[in-house]
């Protein structure tokens, strides 16, 4: 009997030891696995702004950094990258570009056409004239350009001054002086590609232009203050904002900003209550980015509603007196009166 009791105790000890080992093993495995899936953050500077990417799973930091360095070089209007080379080339000389740049330009030209030129990627000569290019913007000016200079520069500030050859991946300028600028779509385009690199799960912030998967709380910057004008919890969405409050200067008390309209003047220059900020939501960050610029130019109009609907997007257009809504924006405006 004593032997049997002792055997029973031994079995109990074995059971307890086995249980403890099982718990420790499983906990160790769980801890290791959770370490592998921990959220990673990679950030840096590109495209004249910043980027910050949060994701989990396989480490693709190097891929993200390499891609952003690539587009930072090739999307820049000045320098030795693809668009810089196009801008520096004489008329009639085909300039070979990379597949990424060509894909960007195809989308750029499409949206430009759909928007009736409100989104104008060929406005770089005007951008230089108004002192908003990366190399001549200092945030101040004593006067605005002469009307004659604006009219003359307008003649070459059109996508019609370029031809694309998809087979050869070349871009040819049709007049000297014409120049492209991907500044109004580059961050969104990059955000979409980075979102693919991280497997479509995570948060990509390309200078305030977003692609997100899981629900996140997001705010729209107040264009005339340090607080926020709208908020939302968004998921599986792209969000982009354009506005007149980052690159601007004042001349005789009037705000001169960097988004230039087809008439050659800053968007809303002749309006009594111009749009000062536009936030577009949709499925593609590139499209949202381009549309936010186009709507800064068109303001609230049947054309802007048609363009937004065509790309299945939604938009909020803020003026200094209130806001307009196109479609059913996920953002709830917390400051300002609805004007439509």
């Amino acid at each position: 009997m004593l032997y049997r009791r002792s055997a029973s105790r031994t079995r109990k000890r074995i059971k307890l030891t086995a249980l403890a080992l099982a718990i420790i093993s499983v906990a160790f495995i769980a801890a290791t696995l959770s370490g592998c899936n921990a959220t990673k953050t990679v950030a840096g500077t590109a495209l004249g702004s910043y980027y910050s990417v949060e994701y989990s799973g396989k480490n693709v930091d190097d891929q993200i950094k390499a891609f952003m360095a690539d587009v930072d070089l090739n999307f820049a209007a000045e320098g030795t990258g693809d668009i810089g080379k196009i801008n520096a080339a004489p008329k009639g000389e085909p300039v070979k570009v990379g597949e990424t740049t060509f894909a960007l330009l195809e989308l750029v030209f499409e949206i430009s056409e759909k928007s009736g030129g409100a989104f104008n990627p060929a406005a770089f000569p005007l951008t230089e004239l108004w002192h908003f290019s990366p190399s001549n913007y200092i945030g101040a000016a004593k006067s605005i350009p002469d009307a004659e200079d604006i009219a003359e520069t307008l003649k070459i500030s059109s996508v019609a001054m370029f031809s694309l050859d998809k087979t050869a991946l070349t871009v040819t300028k049709l007049v000297d002086g014409a120049a492209l600028d991907a500044g109004a779509i580059g961050k969104g385009f990059a955000a979409d590609r980075i979102f693919e690199i991280i497997g479509g799960s995570g948060i990509v912030d390309a200078g305030g232009t977003f692609r997100v998967s899981e629900p996140v709380k997001m705010y729209i910057q107040n264009p005339r203050g340090s607080d926020y004008v709208a908020e939302a919890t968004v998921s599986n969405i792209a969000v982009a904002t354009s506005g007149d409050y980052q690159r601007y200067y004042f001349v005789d008390g009037k705000r001169i900003h960097h988004i230039l309209a087809p008439d050659g003047y800053p968007a809303g220059y002749f309006s009594e209550d111009p749009v000062v900020s536009v936030t577009v939501t949709g499925g593609s960050a590139a499209v949202c980015d381009a549309l936010s610029t186009a709507l800064m130019v068109t303001g609230y109009s049947p054309e802007s509603a048609e363009l937004t609907a065509y790309y299945e997007c939604q938009a909020l257009l803020f003026t200094e007196t209130g806001y307009y809504e196109i479609g059913d924006s996920p953002f709830e405006v917390v400051s300002g009166e609805k004007l439509n």
Partner: peptide
């Protein structure tokens, strides 16, 4: 600061995000 490649990003708290012009 694009010219000098400097970025300051506020983090922590409830992990909120801000869309705007940068």
């Amino acid at each position: 600061c694009a010219p000098n490649g400097i970025t300051v990003i506020v983090r922590g708290g409830d992990s909120e995000y801000v869309t705007g012009v940068h």
